[in-house]
Nucleic acid binder design. Structure first.
Length: 421
DNA sequence: AATACACTCAACCGCGCGAGC
DNA sequence: GGCTCGCGCGGTTGAGTGTAT
C-alpha cells in the first residue's frame, strides 16, 4: 500500500482542468519553470496537487507536443517498440518526439491492440494467435507427412534441400522438415482475416562477389513462404539471380546453395541465372517471426495474403507487411504440398545439372498447370498474368512493391547489425 | 428522438524507486 | 538502516462523444 494521494491532504480540485487553470499553470511554468512540482500549485495559485499539475503540463500544456492523429509511421514504430519494450510507455514515448506516454498508451489500448488482433497477432507477445494451434497442427501433420513422404513429388519439382546447410539464428535451429510444409485447405483461405500459418524464419541479406545482392529466407518453410517467394520472384530483379527462397549460403564453403523453391519460379525466371553458383561476399542473418493472414475481396474474388514479418536484433525491432493478391483457385491451393528431400551433395548436383540442361523438361504437378493470377494488392490494374504464359524476356512490372519496402526495412535491420550492404 | 453501446482520451490512483535526512 | 518525501510510471477509470438500433 502506497502513501495516500497528496490530494487528500487538502481540499483540492480534481477532474478536468478549466481554461483558467491551464492559463495559470502555463504562465507560471513559462516564467519560473516547474521546479519542485509539489510547490507549483501554491506558487501558481491553483487548487490542485503537484502531481495533477505535472500531468497536465506533460500531457497537454507542454509547448513541444505534437497534436493530431498518429501517422502510419508512428503507429508502426509504436508496434515495433512495443515488441521490444513491452508496456514501457515512457521509453516508447521517448522515441516519438512530441508524443506522450499517456497518448501512446491510449492509442495502444484503444486501437493498436485491436489492429494486431485483426492481423492474428497477440498484442502482448507479438506472436501469432494461432501459434499454439499451429504447433499442434504441425505435430499432427508431422506424423502424417512423414508417413506419405513427399520425396517423389519433391523430386518432380526439383526441390533440393540439404538440412545441414540450414543456418541457425538467435542461437536456435529451425530445421526444415516436411511437417512444416502444411497444406492449406480452400476453406481456410476463404475465411476472412484468418491467420493460417506462422513460421519462424531467418532472413539473409547477401551480397555476392560479382556485386549482386539477394534476400534469402530460411527456416521453417511453409506454403505461405512459397507464395512469399513468388512475391519476391515476381517483383524483384526477375532477370538476375534470385536466391530469395533458397537455402542459405553454406558459410563453411562460402558457396551459394540452392533451395527448395526456385523450381516453383523457374517458369518465370531465367533458369541458368537461378542455378548458377555465386560466391558470397557477405551475408547477414536476421531473425524473424512471421504470420500470414488471408482476406477475401468480395468484389473480385481475389485472395490477399498478408504476411507480417517481425524481426528483432539487439535493441531494435521491426515489422513489415507484404501483401500478395491471388485469385482463388481451389485446385491450386489444395494440391500444393511439398516436402524436403534431404539428399546428398551428389543428388543435389544431379538435380541441378538436370534442370540446367533441360529446364523445359521440368515435370510440374498437374495442379500447377492451372493458371493463377498475380497482382499487387495495391494496384488492381496490374496485368493479370498466367504463370504458364510468362516468358523470361517479358519485362516484369518493376514497381515499388511491398517487397521493396520490405527490403528497405531489412536494410534497416542489417544496419542495426552494423553491416552495410 | 431516445436509448444503448462503443470508443476515445484526460485524468486519477497505486506503487516502486531513489534522494535526503 | 530506516523513514519520509517527491517523482515518474503504468494501470485504470469515467466523462464526453460518436454511432447503431
Amino acid at each position: 500500500m502506497g502513501r495516500p494521494p497528496c490530494c487528500y491532504k487538502e481540499k483540492l480540485r480534481k477532474g478536468l482542468w478549466s481554461p483558467e487553470e491551464d492559463e495559470k499553470l502555463l504562465r507560471h511554468i513559462t516564467h519560473h519553470g516547474h521546479g519542485c512540482w509539489s510547490s507549483v500549485p501554491k506558487l501558481a495559485g491553483l487548487q490542485r496537487c503537484g502531481k495533477s499539475c505535472r500531468l497536465r503540463w506533460i500531457n497537454y500544456l507542454r509547448p513541444d507536443l505534437k497534436r493530431g492523429a498518429f501517422s502510419q509511421e508512428e503507429e508502426s514504430l509504436i508496434i515495433e517498440l512495443h515488441a521490444v519494450l513491452g508496456n514501457r510507455w515512457s521509453q516508447i514515448a521517448a522515441q516519438l518526439p512530441g508524443r506522450t506516454d499517456n497518448e501512446i498508451k491510449n492509442l495502444w489500448n484503444s486501437c493498436l491492440k485491436k489492429k494486431l488482433r485483426q492481423r492474428g497477432i497477440d498484442p502482448n507477445t507479438h506472436k501469432p494467435l494461432s501459434e499454439i494451434k499451429n504447433e499442434e497442427d504441425k505435430a499432427f501433420d508431422r506424423n502424417k507427412n512423414h508417413e506419405k513422404s513427399s520425396m517423389e513429388e519433391t523430386s518432380k519439382m526439383g526441390m533440393v534441400v540439404q538440412e545441414n546447410m540450414i543456418s541457425s539464428f538467435a542461437n536456435e535451429r529451425y530445421p526444415l522438415e516436411v511437417s512444416s510444409c502444411r497444406k492449406l485447405s480452400t476453406n481456410n483461405l476463404a475465411a476472412n482475416s484468418e491467420t493460417h500459418e506462422f513460421f519462424r524464419s531467418g532472413c539473409f541479406l547477401t551480397t555476392y562477389e560479382d556485386g549482386g545482392t539477394a534476400t534469402n529466407l530460411v527456416g521453417d518453410f511453409s506454403f505461405q513462404q512459397l507464395v512469399y517467394g513468388l512475391n519476391f520472384g515476381i517483383f524483384k530483379n526477375p532477370d538476375t539471380t534470385l536466391s530469395f527462397n533458397s537455402i542459405p549460403n553454406d558459410r563453411a564453403s562460402n558457396q551459394f546453395n540452392f533451395g527448395a523453391l526456385p523450381s516453383m519460379i523457374l517458369p518465370l525466371m531465367s533458369t541458368s541465372n537461378i542455378l548458377t553458383p555465386r560466391r558470397v561476399k557477405n551475408s547477414v542473418c536476421i531473425a524473424a517471426d512471421s504470420s500470414m493472414n488471408s482476406y477475401t475481396n468480395a468484389s473480385n474474388g481475389f485472395q490477399t495474403l498478408e504476411t507480417t514479418m517481425m524481426g528483432t536484433s539487439g535493441n531494435s525491432s521491426h515489422e513489415s507487411t507484404t501483401n500478395i493478391e491471388l485469385q482463388s483457385n481451389s485446385s491450386f491451393f489444395e494440391s500444393i504440398s511439398w516436402g524436403i528431400e534431404n539428399c546428398g551433395e551428389s543428388g543435389k548436383e544431379a538435380q541441378i545439372q538436370g534442370l540446367e540442361a533441360n529446364p523445359e523438361e521440368i515435370k510440374w504437378p498437374e495442379c500447377l498447370q492451372t493458371p493463377f493470377l498475380l497482382a499487387p494488392s495495391s494496384q488492381n490494374q496490374c496485368p493479370q498474368t498466367s504463370y504458364g504464359e510468362i516468358k523470361p524476356e517479358v519485362p516484369f512490372p518493376m514497381i515499388e512493391t511491398t517487397m521493396d519496402i520490405y527490403s528497405k526495412d531489412l536494410q534497416r535491420l542489417a544496419e542495426s547489425f552494423g553491416q552495410i550492404f
